[in-house]
Amino acid sequence: MNANDHVIETRALSKRYGRKLALDNLDLRIPRGRIHAIVGANGAGKSTLFRILLGFLPPTAGQARILGKDSQALTPQDRARIGFVNEEHTLANWMRVSQVTAMQRRQYPHWSQDAFDGVIGHYNVLPEQKVGQLSRGERAGLNLALALAQGPELLVLDEPTLGLDVVAKRAFLESLLYRNAADDCTVIYCSHQMEEIERVADNLIILERGQLKNMSAPDDFTARVSHWVADVPFKGPDPRTVPGLLEVQRLDGLHHYLVLDQSDGFERFLRDAGARNVQSMPVSLDRAINAFLAKNHATPVAA
């Protein structure tokens, strides 16, 4: 796989803000095509990564390339190949929908009116409406329509459904999936909404404290996480000794363990620790990711 097969490629990418490290020696290669979801807790470095990739922030160390180009030297032509939708759906509030559309149409050489109409058709948006008068969901739809109509090779969606109600979220996802956007371009979908990730993502990328923690198909990641229920008398094993532990809970006298990368050997561990009865069950992607991200969540020293 050569460099051009990766839409995003970072090598030892680091970014420091004062005494905090937002990106820590990040090596990330995202192949061309499909929908890639990037998840991570707040502060995991997702926004910093996008800002560096689009040339809006210099890295402290390392390299970042997007569509094979140095991210710090993108030309206007390069930018035409990259669509970006952010969570605020920043559009000119004072303009009418038709005016915004006309402006974008003239600016982007590969403008696809079909793509625009196909997406905007999911929303009750009139051309004469002012952008400032649109609901948040309608703004999101218009923004997605504009981004897809640009005909980008890479479309970055940075938490596009943040703050949308259930109906608007569904409309957004349907318009994205209905267009088969991934057929024409690579989509990077950054979100905290696991049901969305589950629905759209072909590839799951997990960032934590600026480091790459996982890159695989969502099902593969889910398969790495297992849920064990053990009937252990008294306290059970010291959590520090539990291999691959992500989360432990005691419910109705039973110990619930969420563990990473553990096979049947984990049952032996539990039985050795005194468990009288052990059961294993699959976990949802939502629960697996939440447990994974919560593992290293900062806690006060006294806790």
Binding site: R51, F84, N86, T90, L91, Q107, Y108, P109
Partner: peptide, 14 residues
Amino acid sequence: KPNQWLSLLHRPLH
């Protein structure tokens, strides 16, 4: 503002 600045400058215009 960060997102506004990105939207303004991330376009195929010098």
